[in-house]
Amino acid sequence: MLLSFAGFSQEAHGEHHADEAQHEEEFNATELIMHHIKDAHEFHIADFNGKSYSLPLPVILWTNNGLVTFLSSAFHHDDSGKVVVERNGQKFVRLHDEIYYANAENGITFNEEHHAENDRPLNFSITKNVFTLFLDAALMLLIFIPVARSYKKNSKAPKGLAAFIEPLIVFVRDDIAVPNIGEKKYAKYMPYLLTVFFLIWFGNIFGLIPFFPFSGTLTNDILFTGVMATITFLFTLFSGNKDYWKHIFWMPGLPVPMKIFMIPVELIGMFTKPFALMIRLFANITAGHIIILSLFSLIFIFKTAFVSPVSVGFALFMNVLELLVAALQAYVFTLLSALFIGQAVAEHDHH
Results as ranks from 00 to 15, higher is better:
residue 316 L to Q: 00
residue 127 T to F: 08
residue 98 E to I: 06
residue 23 H to S: 13
residue 162 A to P: 01
residue 216 G to P: 01
residue 7 G to Y: 07
residue 154 N to P: 01
residue 114 H to S: 04
residue 323 L to Y: 10
residue 250 W to S: 11
residue 222 I to N: 01
residue 133 L to A: 15
residue 326 A to Y: 05
residue 1 M to C: 07
residue 49 N to D: 13
residue 175 D to Y: 04
residue 80 S to F: 11
residue 259 K to G: 13
residue 63 T to W: 06
residue 200 I to S: 05
residue 348 H to I: 09
residue 121 P to W: 05
residue 147 V to D: 00
residue 199 L to E: 01
residue 69 T to C: 11
residue 120 R to P: 01
residue 325 V to Q: 08
residue 182 G to T: 13
residue 100 Y to L: 09
residue 10 Q to M: 10
residue 216 G to T: 02
residue 13 H to C: 06
residue 181 I to E: 08
residue 108 I to D: 01
residue 33 I to S: 14
residue 19 D to V: 13
residue 203 G to D: 06
residue 221 D to Q: 05
residue 339 L to W: 07
residue 231 I to R: 00
residue 47 D to G: 09
residue 320 V to I: 12
residue 217 T to R: 01
residue 248 I to R: 10
residue 206 F to G: 05
residue 72 S to D: 09
residue 197 F to L: 04
residue 287 A to R: 05
residue 130 V to L: 15
residue 168 L to T: 01
residue 168 L to C: 06
residue 84 V to E: 10
residue 40 A to K: 15
residue 8 F to D: 12
residue 3 L to R: 14
residue 171 F to D: 02
residue 112 E to F: 01
residue 225 T to E: 02
residue 11 E to D: 14
residue 53 Y to L: 15
residue 195 T to S: 13
residue 310 V to T: 09
residue 323 L to A: 08
residue 3 L to E: 14
residue 67 L to N: 06
residue 316 L to F: 09
residue 194 L to V: 15
residue 207 G to A: 15
residue 272 T to I: 15
